[in-house]
């Protein structure tokens, strides 16, 4: 464990908590893409199947349980409890265009052709594009609540911090995983224009307005 990975995990934890607070306090999931949340739940389910078979540390297990529970819980809140506030009309990104290519790619490009490894690879590829429905929805609505933009900033930062973690591990541990690194770079790059808007607007107290 290193400071970059810890900061990344905490940023990821913060993002999920911010989202849950937003939905629970406003009792609404307006502006949130349910499709992205479904993709995140799939990412965690396919990545943490080894939760019971592969004990790393109490921290690792606790975080996996929280991420699994919160992502499934968020899907429940969006599609069942606060279903009336879910914005179907703007959450229209075709997630099959993300699921199929990442599934095929994980069958072709992986470290080992085994069920667990392919599911892990699929979850890495899927996570890199899972935010697209959410970014698409923000571009369609043309704006986002400030708490939603804080959520996106924390979520985008987490994988950016993981890139620093991979650089650190490469130089100090000689460890690197090219699949996770490439996918993590793609994932972080997808947030770039949002990061620009967040830093130039939201941090100045303005609302996140996308040029229509």
């Amino acid at each position: 464990m290193n400071i970059f990975r810890l900061a990344g995990d905490l940023s990821h934890l913060a993002a999920i908590i911010i989202l849950l607070i937003k939905i629970w306090k406003t009792r609404s999931c307006a502006g949130i893409s349910g499709r992205s949340q479904v993709l995140f739940a799939i990412v965690f389910i396919t990545r943490y199947l080894d939760l019971f078979t592969n004990f790393i540390s109490a921290y690792n297990t606790a975080m996996k349980v929280f991420f699994l529970g919160s992502s499934i819980g968020t899907v429940y809140l969006m599609y069942l409890k606060f279903k009336a506030t879910y914005d179907h009309n703007h959450d229209t990104f075709r997630i099959e265009f993300l699921l199929l290519p990442t599934a095929l790619l994980s069958l072709v490009l992986n470290h080992e052709f085994s069920v667990m490894e392919i599911l892990w690879t699929f979850s890495i590829y899927l996570e890199s594009v899972a935010i697209l429905p959410q970014l698409f929805m923000v571009s369609k609505t043309g704006e986002a609540e400030s708490i939603t933009s804080h959520y996106l900033f924390a979520l985008g930062s987490y994988r950016g911090l993981y890139i620093l973690n991979w650089i650190y591990r490469y130089y100090f541990e000689g460890f690197y995983d090219i699949i996770a690194i490439v996918a993590g770079c793609v994932q972080t790059i997808l947030y770039c224009d949002f990061f620009y808007l967040y830093i130039t607007k939201v941090l100045k107290g303005k609302k996140l307005q996308l040029p229509a």
């Binding site: 990975r5 995990d9 592969n54 690792n60 996996k64 892990w120 996770a180």
Partner: peptide, 10 residues
């Protein structure tokens, strides 16, 4: 050796 490539990242 097997432990080496354990997935220890979240």
């Amino acid at each position: 050796e097997e432990d080496e490539n354990k997935k220890d990242e979240l």
